[in-house]
């Protein structure tokens, strides 16, 4: 149960009980703020102003062939993956694993992050070079 010792307010974990360090929490909050903007644009572009889903390939390739949209989606990819995996790490830490376990999780999460953003970046760059049939 959450007690007053653990909660600054209900739903807000205090610094001692927090699963992340202060810097990581700051990054988590900052990336969260960016994601609200990025995701808003992404949802609008992909689901409202993106044309028919039947021709989605043309829309995606058309967007990514624009360097500004490509940069936008790459930054979105790096930030959203960081936010998601860092949050996951925090959740795993909250299970009360040992210090050694935390180090292992931290390295594993970092590895998954690097592989994910390399894969996503290469995929985006390759798709940006594709031609619309």
């Amino acid at each position: 149960m959450m007690s007053n010792m653990n909660m600054k307010s209900e739903g807000t974990i205090n610094k001692k009980a927090r699963s992340m360090g202060s810097i990581q929490w700051l990054f988590q909050a900052a990336t969260g703020a960016f994601i609200i903007f990025f995701l808003g644009v992404h949802l609008y572009v992909a689901h409202i102003n993106g044309g028919s889903p039947v021709e989605l390939f043309d829309t995606v390739v058309g967007n990514l062939s624009n360097p500004w949209w490509l940069a936008f989606f790459l930054v979105f990819l790096w930030i959203v993956t960081y936010h998601g995996l860092n949050g996951l790490k925090g959740i795993i830490y909250e299970t009360g694993i040992s210090t050694r376990g935390r180090k292992g999780v931290s390295w594993a999460i970092m590895g998954v992050y690097i592989v994910s953003i390399i894969y996503g970046t290469v995929l985006s760059l390759v798709v940006a070079q594709m031609t619309i049939p």
Binding site: D58, V80, T81, G84, G87, Y119, L123
Partner: peptide, 27 residues
């Protein structure tokens, strides 16, 4: 909700990987 979103993120990567199979297949 955070865990669900992370799982979806990787499902999204998987679906978008099908872009490499060309327009007809992806559409």
């Amino acid at each position: 909700s955070g865990i669900v979103i992370v799982l979806y993120l990787y499902l999204h990567f998987f679906v978008l990987s099908n872009l490499l199979r060309g327009g007809v297949t992806f559409n």
